[in-house]
Nucleic acid binder design. Sequence first.
DNA 1: CAGGCACTTGACAGCGCTTTCAAAATCTGA
DNA 2: TCAGATTTTGAAAGCGCTGTCAAGTGCCTG
Lengths: 342, 342
Amino acid sequence: MREAVTLSDVAREAGVSPSTVSRVINGTARVAASKREAVLRAIERLHYRPNIMAKGLAQGRSLTIGVITQEISSPYYAEMLKGVEQALEGTAYHPIFASGHWRVDQEEAALKVLVGRQVDGLIVMDGSVPEERLKELAHTMPVVVVGRRIPGLQCLGIDNRRAAYEGVQHLIELGHRRIAHIAGPTSHPDSIERLEGYRAALEDAHIPFDPALVVVGDYMEQSGVLAVEALLARGALFTAIFAANDQMAYGANVALYRRGIRVPHDVSLVGFDDLPSSSYFTPPLTTVRQPGPAMGWEAARLMLALLEGRDYTPKPLSTHLVVRESTALIRSTGALAAHLLT
Amino acid sequence: MREAVTLSDVAREAGVSPSTVSRVINGTARVAASKREAVLRAIERLHYRPNIMAKGLAQGRSLTIGVITQEISSPYYAEMLKGVEQALEGTAYHPIFASGHWRVDQEEAALKVLVGRQVDGLIVMDGSVPEERLKELAHTMPVVVVGRRIPGLQCLGIDNRRAAYEGVQHLIELGHRRIAHIAGPTSHPDSIERLEGYRAALEDAHIPFDPALVVVGDYMEQSGVLAVEALLARGALFTAIFAANDQMAYGANVALYRRGIRVPHDVSLVGFDDLPSSSYFTPPLTTVRQPGPAMGWEAARLMLALLEGRDYTPKPLSTHLVVRESTALIRSTGALAAHLLT
DNA sequence: CAGGCACTTGACAGCGCTTTCAAAATCTGA
DNA sequence: TCAGATTTTGAAAGCGCTGTCAAGTGCCTG
């Protein structure tokens, strides 16, 4: 473990003072060209790399941005993290992640870890830590919130209601009238908004809302299969399903497959998110695209702006329907009923 | 942005010296019970949180472990990262990630970023940075390598050859003899090993190896569809496909789906990895399971051991075949040919 | 009761870098 | 040519914490 070369080593080598070396490295003040050259050469020669912790200590900042996600291995968050990573590339900042696992206590723990690591700013993705807690943190450092709307904080997000509306509208246009909805957890604001969008689309098409057609899941694949089984078990008749996210749509799809119900032949299926794998799904999934990487990117850019005291208006995050092959014109209202009878 | 409370604040509040506070926090020496109490109360009262950078500077370590992956949003790496995260939970260390994007230069850049961030150790997942470079780094800090075998370094990985052998053997047992292989990039050692396993299984079953049945992809979904198209275009006859990873299997599956070739009815499909989504795939994918989280976990535990100078023998990472619904007994050798003729 | 021992404790010198302040060097213009 | 303005430079004081060292405390033993 060889000794690290320090700024003073460079200074000695270059025949100047440490202050001067610091100045040329950070460009904090003018330095005579000759000395600058000498310093740069010395840095080169000694393979000097600044110690970021010392720098952090001295400047009172860590050049680190904390990102709270719910689950680092979830494809949905992975997309956003990728955006964050890209936005920070080439800047002096680096992201550091911690996961809340959809549990308030773990989220709080994650928050503590990041704060303890002296992050200069915090990006919070979804989650259910109390608003007050985040506002309190915002007194200490810039906070950007993705996927929640908290008055007084910088928030980023899509119009879930409208996006869901579009997805359901698509099914209606294909002639479907009995459309089931696999909702997300009722504790998530976005699930609620998507449910609202679903209801609004039905209403505008004069289709009565049938509570028996909605079942709530937890955004994981397994809950999608459970949802379809529940639907089928209660004898619900439907020719289409709108799932509140792609992962539950995946689950719904296997459940239907197992029953011999074909998508989209017998039942049309619409998801939400457009995960990368959705276009390679069989059948390729029709879904409402949510710009994951862009959300991460904008959150990170906004954070950088806050840190540098700049103004920044994030680009609006828009969603749009991606029509693939899991939806089709309704065939016959009796199709599913027939299946159920066999 | 309120002022942070420091260790000296605590010391003053508790009426002891900073050294004593440090000692009770770190448990580095015995402290009289009464003083310890006082300190703990002061910490509580002031909401003191140690400044990790100062600590790092003083101790010459950052309590940070750098992890190089190829792509943070790839489900394969996400699994391993999750394992790393879990293994480090509750320890003083925290992971920090950087991505190489399968490009040597970017990987080198990622390495530089992490080293510049004073990571105490480095976990390198796959990648193609020169062995020499890693060995050089290993003089400076502990290095754990996952997915590559580099003499002289701590390496972790599965037996790709054997794992692939098992997957192909399964197909052979189902009666398949014309088994195509979608290989990974030839620059990856693991792709090569999997190809070897494929060939060995054929050989042991006295099935001649047919180069026309193997096409190389790049481990991404799209290359799976391209591969199947290439196979079909060149008129290759096959009743089964062994893909070198699940993502390419997904691609292969859509490509077959588009052609009206049914899995597993017409063609059986075996993947490699067992990504979380593979069990929700339609049909649920038969695949060789690779213990992603365990690999991350073991790598992290090994790293901790190295950092603490302990001995640690990682548990062997074993793979096993997970039979789901994408494979079936061969129906008739002519099935695919019939399809091709239509 | 003095001497010796084992613990506790606090002072202080860094860790590597930034940043202020004032001195030194350089440049103006009359 | 020199006073004064301006720029460049170095000394030094931290940033918040750790860890060494020596002084201080109490206790046991002879």
